[in-house]
Computed example of a mutant assay.
Amino acid sequence: MSLTVHACIPQIISLFPCLSDISEQDWSIKGIEVLEISPNFVFHEGQFLEHAVMLLEGTVRMYKISSSGREITLYRINGGECCPLMTSSILGESEYEASACIEKPCRALLIPVSTFRDWMDKYRNFRQFMFKSFANRIIIMSNLLDSIHFKSIRGRIAEYLIQSADGSGNVMITHDRLSIELGTAREVISRTLKMLEKDELILLSRGKISIIDHKALEHYLES
């Protein structure tokens, strides 16, 4: 067991109680480590994983890029979470089906894939946590697909702004970034935002969108 991992075990178990059953012997397996990862590091889709990653601190954005080059955010992973696509890739011995970008400095527990599979077989609580995480993300992905296929772009923008606004009703985001978050063309985003501004629902400024009429914006949530 490395000193780094040993020192982090209290934090690891506080964030992932499912790991409290792991034996001293299993914590000592070669290849288990805690790693600091800087922002903007990218793990690209299509690679085979050598480690399972359980996030202790920071934020990772999961996204897909279409054959045409359009990018869409799938979801984010924060401290105390792990990626279900990771579990699927490891257990299925298949390529990773998304890309991951470090948004905030991360500290992560890395577990060799062979050890991860052994722990899935050996520890019931660990296995249940992984499958529960998988089920929760399926719901998130289902909601994303529903939003893309059944909601208008006005409704999707309104939902994003309402969910992301700070206490003053401001969202610090560019049109380019919003187009990536919602998986649509920048021109569509800019045109729709200008229409919402014309209707006096929002106010646009460089790198910032301010909600002016929160109640009116909510009317688009079901559209």
Rank of each mutant, 00 (worst) to 15 (best):
W119A: 02
T174S: 15
K30N: 15
D21I: 02
L85G: 10
L221I: 14
S223G: 14
D21T: 05
G79F: 13
I180N: 02
D21Y: 01
R156V: 02
E24M: 09
N78K: 13
S142Y: 09
S2F: 02
S28C: 12
L221H: 08
S2C: 06
S205P: 02
S147F: 07
V53G: 01
S190P: 11
C83K: 01
T73K: 11
K215A: 13
S223R: 07
G80Y: 03
S68Y: 12
T73V: 13
F129M: 14
T174W: 02
S142L: 12
L221R: 06
P105L: 12
F134L: 11
G155Q: 07
Q11M: 14
Y160E: 05
F43R: 11
F41M: 15
W27P: 00
H6S: 12
W27M: 05
M195K: 10
H219G: 08
S94F: 11
W119M: 04
C106P: 00
L161N: 02
K30R: 11
P17Q: 10
S94V: 11
V53L: 04
Y220N: 02
I72L: 11
H175I: 08
A98C: 15
H44A: 09
I138P: 03
N136Q: 15
M130K: 04
L110H: 07
R61F: 08
T87V: 15
I153W: 01
I202F: 06
L161W: 02
S89F: 00
S67Q: 15
M172Q: 10
I211W: 09
L201K: 02
V60E: 02
N40R: 14
I90V: 13
V60Y: 00
Q25R: 14
A98M: 15
A7H: 09
H175C: 11
F43W: 13
L196T: 02
L221F: 15
I212S: 08
H44G: 04
F48P: 05
S168A: 08
L144S: 10
S142F: 05
R107Y: 07
K132C: 06
I9P: 00
C101T: 11
L15S: 04
A100K: 00
L193Y: 01
S190N: 06
D118W: 10
L204G: 05
E159W: 05
H219I: 12
H149I: 11
W27Y: 14
I162M: 11
I37R: 04
V42N: 08
D118T: 12
L109G: 01
R117T: 10
E81C: 04
P39F: 05
G31W: 05
N40Y: 06
D26E: 15
K198V: 04
I162L: 15
F43S: 06
I72W: 05
S205H: 06
G92C: 10
M86C: 09
M54I: 00
E187A: 13
I13A: 03
S190R: 03
S14W: 08
L178F: 03
S20N: 14
E200H: 13
G58E: 06
Y75S: 03
I65K: 10
F48M: 08
L221S: 07
L178P: 00
S223W: 15
D166A: 07
I209E: 01
K151F: 12
N136M: 10
S23H: 07
V34N: 00
K132S: 09
F41Q: 14
I72Q: 10
C83L: 09
K122N: 06
Y63D: 04
